[in-house]
Structures are given as C-alpha cells and as structure tokens.
Design a protein around this nucleic acid. Structure first.
Lengths: 253, 253
DNA sequence: ACAAAAGTGTTGACCATACACCCATGC
DNA sequence: GCATGGGTGTATGGTCAACACTTTTGT
C-alpha cells in the first residue's frame, strides 16, 4: 500500500533542510474516521458522513471527527466519535494514516500559530445493526461511495485512502466476518465481496470452494430460506480455526 | 498488517467515554525513523540507532527522531532527521504508524500539560553508500537486529512494527531494488531476501525463475566476476516494466 | 582437473479457472 | 412443472517445491 503523499525516490538533497532554529510547532490532534458499511439489500458500499455545524466549511460534509482530549489515547478518541454517531455491537477498527502537512486546516492561518494534524482511522460496521444517533436532528448520513458530495478539508483524499485499504484488507484478512451477522450464508459473503471489490472478481463456485477449504467456516446445520430457491446452509466464523492462518499470506480473492 | 495496539473486537460500550468537557490536548509531534539497511558482505540486517544526549533516557539508544517544526510537513521532518544522520543517494521512505497514547513520554508528567505524539517513518537505504554523519563524535551506529541494546521510550515496539513492515513489503513490492546498486546480480537479490526473511524462504533456482518471469529485470549483457565460479549476469531494474504490475498482487516470496 | 558459483531443466503435487450440471424449494 | 437460487463436479492449464544437472570461471 503506497503512501499517498510521498515520493520515495526523491533525493533528500533536492530539499532545502528546515533550519534547526525554526520553533517547534504546537499541534492540536484530530482523529478522522472513515466508517464503512455494506448495505446487503441494495448491494451498496456506504460511508458515514457528518454535516459540519460550524466554520470552517460550515454546511459541508466531512468525516466524523474530533480533537483528542487530554487524557485519552488516539484509539480512544476514535471510539469516542464513533460511539457519538452510531450504536453498533460489532466493528473492526484500525489506524489508517496520519496527515499532517501545514495548510491542511484553514484555522492555521489565524495566529497564534497552531498546527492541525489528523490521524485517520478506518472502521467497518454491520449496516443492519448500526443505528445512527441523531443529535439535534440533521446532519449525519450514509453515503454510497459513488454518490459522494463535496467534502471539507482533505477528507476526499482520506476517504480514498480508506477505500483502498478496505479493498486490500478484504483480500487477505477476514474482516468480512466482523461485519457479517453471526450466522450467514456463503452467498452473503460472496455478495459482500462483490459489492466492495466489484463484479466479476471471481466465479461464485470457485470463491465458495476456496473459502471452505480454508477451514475456518463451520456449517451450523441450519438453513436459511429466502423466497424461492433452495435454502442455503448457514455458516459460522470460527476464530480459533482462523488463528493459525493469521500470519500466512491468505488469498480470499 | 494488524495494528499493534488495538483490539478490534472490543465493544465500544465496554468503554467509559471521555467526557466531552475534558480540555483538548496540546501536542508536540515527533517523527521517529526506523532506518534499515542490509550489509550484503556480512548478510546482516541493520537498523540505525542514536545515543541520547539529554534527558529523559540520557545515554540510552533510540531511533533517530526530531520534533516537527513550524513550517514543515511530517515527511519533511522525516527527511530532515535522516539527512542529519546519514548521507545517501537512494532511499525508500514511507509512513509507518502513529503512536499517541498518553504516558509515552516521561516529559508529559511535568506541567504545563503537554502530550507527545510520534509519527513513525520507515526507511530503507543502501548500506554501501550510506555515510554516517558523526556529530561531535559519538552516538550513532548501525545495529544488527539480533543484537539490539535496550531502547528508550517505546522504540522497541516501533522497531518491531517497522521490521514486520519491511518483511511484508519485501514480499509484494519492489523495494529491494531501491536499495540494490544500479547493476546487480540475481544472487545479490537472493542474498538480500535471505538476510531479511531468513534462510530457506525459497530455493534459489525457483526464486530466480519467478523473478525473471515477472519481466521487470533487464539483462545488461555485462558480467560480474567475483573470485572463483562462473561470472554472474548483471541485471537492471526497469521501473517502466514494473509499472503495469503496480496494483496487482505480486509474489516475490 | 576440480572446486565454486551461475544458470537450466524436470518432475509430481497442488491450485485456479471456467464451465456444466444436479438439488431443493416457492409458486 | 418451472423458475430460482444453492451446491457439486470436472477438465485444463498453470504454478510451486524439490532436486538433479550443466556451464563457466579461478586456481
């Protein structure tokens, strides 16, 4: 996964080194969450956006965010905004990337000189159980990734970076099962993969046998009947069976 | 790559949310570099360490680091420390992870309350051309990864995280060629992989044919004779030939 | 001539892909 | 009984690990 803002090949001697006498910057640290979920009924990949209620960018959408408070860790701050916006029981959360260039936040222009750095987090939640918490009424919504509004700050970039991470993670780690219900059918899994990675990422029957051969899905014996067609077997993800595969290069494709 | 400090499965409702009235923390932002290089003559993986010259942890080793100054970006700060410690022409640099929990730095204990966050960067440089810059004489050295001294702060953790990233990157991206000389033999490449990933990661002849089949190494026609034995063909990395493979899941193993 | 290092080839096991086909249910 | 979605099987080609073998050099 390449970092988005870097050019690794640039020689360090093409740069004018910052004079060591420049004062050390003072930062406020924000945490920005890229929260994804998948609406399986409509096969849509969604991201959670919040309408800004103050300047700068009042009235524009942005990612759920907060400034880190005195006693809390970055991860705690990430959980805090998440919990302020939605109620969920299961989620996957990991740090994404840190954006810290000068000029990211227009508030930096007004003295006393203050820099704004933001550590972004990436989350995946179960759409069916995610209950949005409406504070005062308006201004929080799931947006399909292909119908995004214009975003404040550099949140477009952060979101793209998160999307790339989501697709990669799906291919080699079992985050899908954090977000599927306790019991699920194999076509549930297939659908989830399809809506995130796009159509024709793999044949259903091959996907199916590959997945089963990995050996961490347990047949429950229960069946799910959804309208017409043969009822599907319900499976359960078995973390203990997955553990030994943790560090191996997996391919769910 | 799992984040090191997180437990994704923990429910957010097991946490006591930070009261929104807690004041926003003020941060100094440090950049810590995990700088690797490979000594091919001795088959050793090395990391650059610096002896601390002030409190806290005076006299202990730590990663090269600096606080971000007013006008510079994170990446610029990373380049700045790197350039202050070594002179190189080629390097690979990318952001690693951000560590920001309270209590990481003992200086946080003395008021006025100030938090220290550190954004770590990961770098790979060419050992043969990396010239250490000795400032005042002592206190900067390449350490083999299996003979590390005790490190200050949480730098042991940062280093381990960097090491994990290095091994992963080596498997699916061409960073090795950033660090090999312009012209190299296939056993140079093999040796580099072996010293980073450990012995028996793959048979030489299989590694060789896999690598050549990828098609981004160009035979130069030149030969390298190193003592006894058949002279080896010198190859060159061709970035244009690699470009189309950029987003595909590569396996160098 | 022979040791040392580079480079080629072969084999059998496994795995991915693209399909064709069978099964259980609702209507 | 037929449409619908679930599930199984198979033939083809490719890839991978292990290992034997050939080639080109220095001494």
């Amino acid at each position: 996964m390449a970092a988005p803002i870097e050019n690794p090949l640039r020689s360090i001697y093409q740069r004018q080194p910052t004079l060591p006498t420049t004062p050390k910057a003072n930062f406020k640290v924000g945490v920005d969450n890229v929260i994804f979920s998948v609406d399986m009924t409509q096969n849509r990949l969604l991201v959670l956006l919040v309408m800004r209620e103050r300047e700068p960018f009042l009235g524009k959408w942005n990612l759920p965010r907060t400034l880190v408070r005195e006693p809390e860790s970055l991860e705690e701050a990430a959980y805090r905004i998440l919990a302020a916006k939605i109620r969920v029981n299961n989620l996957y959360l990991e740090q994404l990337y840190t954006f810290g260039g000068p000029g990211r936040d227009p508030r930096e222009l007004t003295p006393p000189s203050q820099r704004y750095l933001s550590v972004s987090y990436f989350a995946l939640v179960r759409f069916e159980e995610a209950e949005l918490i409406s504070t005062g009424g308006r201004g929080i919504a799931w947006y399909p990734l292909d119908e995004l509004p214009e975003l404040a700050f550099d949140h477009q970039e952060i979101l793209q970076y998160g999307h790339r991470r989501l697709r990669n993670k799906l291919e080699y780690s079992p985050i899908a099962f954090e977000v599927l219900p306790e019991l699920f059918t194999l076509s549930d899994v297939y659908q989830l993969y399809t809506t995130v990675l796009g159509e024709n990422f793999s044949d259903y029957s091959n996907f199916r046998s590959r997945l089963l051969k990995l050996g961490f899905l347990e047949e429950t014996g229960l069946k799910a009947s959804r309208g017409a067609g043969r009822p599907a077997t319900l499976y359960r993800f078995v973390p203990e069976a997955f553990a030994p595969l943790k560090d191996k290069p997996l391919v769910f494709i």
